[in-house]
Write a protein that binds this DNA or RNA. Structure first.
Lengths: 222, 222
DNA sequence: TTTTGTGAACTAGTTCACAGCT
DNA sequence: AGCTGTGAACTAGTTCACAAAA
C-alpha cells in the first residue's frame, strides 16, 4: 500500500457511486495529461471541465488519503498513480468472457479494456462451431468445459457474462465454482451469487426502457 | 392516458432509479406470466422472488396510480399493461445506431431490444467498406451523411452511440441536430447535450474498474 | 385476514462553507 | 491568495409500520 489508508477500508464499505467516480476521475486525468503539459490540477478545474462537483471530487479522494496540496491542487501524475493503485489497475487483471455470440465477441475486442491494462484471456462457449475460432482481435474461443482447467492456468480475475438470459444462472454458478470473485453481467435478469463474489450488472434493456419512459413523459406532459 | 396520472408527472421529476426499477418490475412480471397461470401477484411475492423490497415496489407503482387491490395484490396482466404504457412501450420506438463496429453490430442484433418492441432502423458509419453491408440479423449500414434524410423518413426516436470516444461528441451533435431526443451512449467520457435531450450512459470501463477496485480491496483488507 | 398505499422515520449521498495549510 | 480537507447542512432515496380497503 502506497496511499494513506487510514484504516477505513476494512471497516466502512466504500459506496459503488464513489468507486465509479474514481474511475471517471482517472479518465479525466488521462485527458488532462494528453492535453497541454500541466503538472497540477485543482478540483475546481476538473469540475468545470468535466461537469462534476469540486467538493465531491475532494471528498472522494480524501477518503483514500491526502493527495492534494493546499493552495496548489493535485499533482496530475501522482494522483493518476494513486488512483490506478486504489482501483487495482497496477495489477494485471485477466478476464474470461462467457458466451462467444455477437456481444461476447464485441467485448473481447473492445479497445477500452486493453487500454487500462485488462487482458482478455479467452471466450467460452458451448457451440462446437465456435470453439477454436478467434475474434477479429485474436481472442480464442474455448469449450466452456475447459473453464475449470484454464482458470487454474490463466488465473482469471473477472468474468463477463454474455450468454442468453436463460443460461446465465448456471454459467454464473460455474464461474463462481472455479474461484472467480468478480462478475460483470450483461444478461438481463436477477442472478444469485455468494456474498464473497462481487456481481455488477449492465442491463441494456433497462437502460433503453428508461429512455423510452423519458420520451413517453415528454410527449404526454407537454 | 389510461393509468391514473394524478397530475404529478408534469410537476415533480421521477427519479431515474425509479424508472430503472419499473423496467425491472416489467421483466419480473413477464417471468411470472411465463410461469404457472397465476393471475395476481403481491408486492411481497415479487420482492421475495426477485430480491427486491416490497414497500419500494408499492411506492414506485403508487406514484403512477392505484394499480393494486387491497387484500389481493396486483392483477398480473393489468399491471403489465400499465407498466408498458408508463414506460412508453405501447408505442413503436425506432432506434438508430451510430457506429457499425463490433459493438454497434452486436447492439443491432441484440435480441432483447426487439423483444420489448424496439425497432433497429439502421446502423450509421463513415467507413465506405461498411456502408451497404448488413449485420447478421439484417440491419443495414448507411453513410452517416444520410442520417438527416433518413431521420425524416424513419422518425428515429432513440440513438445509440457506439463510435470511438474521440468521435462521440460530434456524432452526438449530429444526432441532436436531426431532432433525436433520447441517446444511449456506449462511448466512454463526458458528452454535452441540450437540456431537452435525455442522455444515458453505459460505461464499460467504469463498470470493469469498479470490479477491479473490489478485488483490490478484497485482497488488501483480508 | 390479507395486502395495498402512504406518512413518518431512517439511511445514504451531495453540496455548502470555512478552518487550516502552503 | 489559493486550494484542500472536512464538519455541518441539506437533499434524495429507502424502509418501516400502520390505517384503510377488499
Amino acid at each position: 500500500m502506497n496511499y494513506v489508508n487510514k484504516g477505513r477500508l476494512a471497516h466502512d464499505q466504500v459506496s459503488e457511486l464513489t468507486t465509479n467516480r474514481l474511475s471517471v476521475y482517472l479518465r479525466c486525468l488521462n485527458q488532462v495529461i494528453d492535453g497541454a503539459g500541466v503538472t497540477t490540477v485543482s478540483s475546481q478545474l476538473l469540475a468545470d471541465q468535466f461537469g462534476l462537483n469540486a467538493a465531491q471530487i475532494r471528498k472522494d479522494l480524501a477518503y483514500f488519503g491526502e493527495f492534494g496540496v493546499r493552495g496548489v491542487g493535485y499533482y496530475v501524475k501522482d494522483l493518476r498513480g494513486n488512483l490506478r493503485q486504489i482501483l487495482g489497475l497496477d495489477r494485471h487483471l485477466r478476464v474470461a468472457i462467457m458466451g462467444a455470440g455477437n456481444l461476447g465477441l464485441a467485448l473481447a475486442d473492445y479497445p477500452g479494456f486493453r487500454q487500462e491494462g485488462f487482458e482478455i484471456g479467452g471466450l467460452f462457449d458451448v457451440a462446437n462451431e465456435k470453439i477454436g475460432q478467434e475474434s477479429r482481435g485474436g481472442v480464442l474461443t474455448y469449450d466452456v468445459k475447459e473453464l475449470k482447467r484454464l482458470a487454474r492456468r490463466e488465473r482469471f480475475d473477472i468474468a463477463m457474462i454474455a450468454v442468453p438470459a436463460s443460461r446465465a444462472q448456471p454459467v454464473v454458478d460455474l464461474v463462481v465454482s472455479v474461484g472467480i470473485k468478480a462478475i460483470l453481467n450483461f444478461s438481463p435478469g436477477v442472478l444469485k451469487v455468494p456474498n464473497n463474489v462481487k456481481l455488477k450488472g449492465v442491463d441494456l434493456t433497462v437502460s433503453l426502457e428508461s429512455l423510452s419512459f423519458f420520451l413517453a413523459q415528454d410527449n404526454a406532459g407537454g
